[in-house]
Simulated scan of single mutants.
Amino acid sequence: MKNKQSVHEAVFQLSYDLGLQIAPKLENLNVKLAPQQLRAMRQIWVDGESTLIDIAKTLKRDKAQIKRLLDELCSLKMIERIPNPNDGRSKLLILTNNGREFFEKVEKVEAEFSKQLTKGIEKEQLDTFFLVSSCLIENLRNID
């Protein structure tokens, strides 16, 4: 007898299968980046600029780990550090031209993937999915 599916199992399966399906599509872009590097670049892409501390908070990693991750992105010429006009002690992280070109390609791959992923799902159903997933994310962030 099959047990009723749990929320965490559904989320795990969705996350796992999503990673399996999209990873090869992103690998076709000929730049090998770790998922956390992509996430850091996405934050910079969306915000226009970011700081090491902002990215560390988002990824829930210590500053030393994030610094190494960002150093590698700098060496790949995907991001660069510029002086922060609001805080002389920190640097702002921005995408280089290479980084922007790469992320435009990522966006195209993800848009096509999203189209395939949501095929046959009504807008109202997607709106409900986004509402529920936002609540789950918020609850996850507040678990002691």
Rank of each mutant, 00 (worst) to 15 (best):
E101I: 00
I53S: 09
N30V: 06
L131P: 02
E124S: 15
F113M: 14
I79L: 06
P85E: 12
I121M: 13
E138N: 06
F103Q: 02
M1Y: 06
V109P: 07
E27I: 00
F113Y: 13
Y16C: 06
E101C: 08
N86F: 12
I44A: 03
Q36V: 11
S75A: 15
M41P: 01
T58H: 00
N3P: 12
L93W: 03
R68D: 06
N98T: 11
V106G: 03
C74I: 07
Q37D: 08
V46L: 15
S114V: 07
A111K: 11
M1S: 04
K63V: 12
Q43V: 04
V11K: 01
A23G: 13
I22F: 04
K115T: 12
P35I: 01
Q37W: 08
L38D: 03
R89F: 13
L93K: 01
S50C: 04
N84S: 09
R42T: 06
L126N: 07
M1T: 03
A40W: 00
N142Y: 04
S114I: 03
T51A: 04
R81D: 05
D47A: 15
R81M: 12
N98H: 14
I79V: 14
V109R: 00
A34F: 08
K2F: 01
K4N: 06
T128K: 08
L20D: 09
L14A: 10
Q5G: 08
L33Y: 00
K25M: 15
Q21R: 15
R42N: 11
R81E: 03
K63C: 15
R42D: 07
R68L: 05
C74H: 08
Q43S: 02
R61A: 11
V31A: 13
A40R: 00
L14T: 12
K108H: 10
N98D: 14
I22S: 10
N139E: 12
R141E: 13
L14Q: 06
Q43P: 03
D127Y: 02
F129E: 02
P24F: 07
P24H: 05
R81C: 08
Q116R: 14
E72L: 14
L140Q: 01
N86S: 13
R100E: 02
N142L: 14
R141H: 08
W45M: 11
N30D: 06
D71H: 13
A10G: 10
K2Q: 07
K115A: 08
Q5R: 07
G19L: 04
K67Q: 08
K63M: 10
L59W: 01
L38C: 02
T128L: 09
G19F: 01
I94F: 02
K77S: 14
L52C: 14
E107C: 10
Q36M: 08
N30K: 11
V7A: 15
F130V: 05
E72W: 05
Q116L: 15
Q65L: 12
W45D: 13
Q13S: 12
L76Y: 03
I79H: 03
I22T: 09
I55M: 09
Q65R: 02
E80N: 03
K60H: 07
K119Y: 11
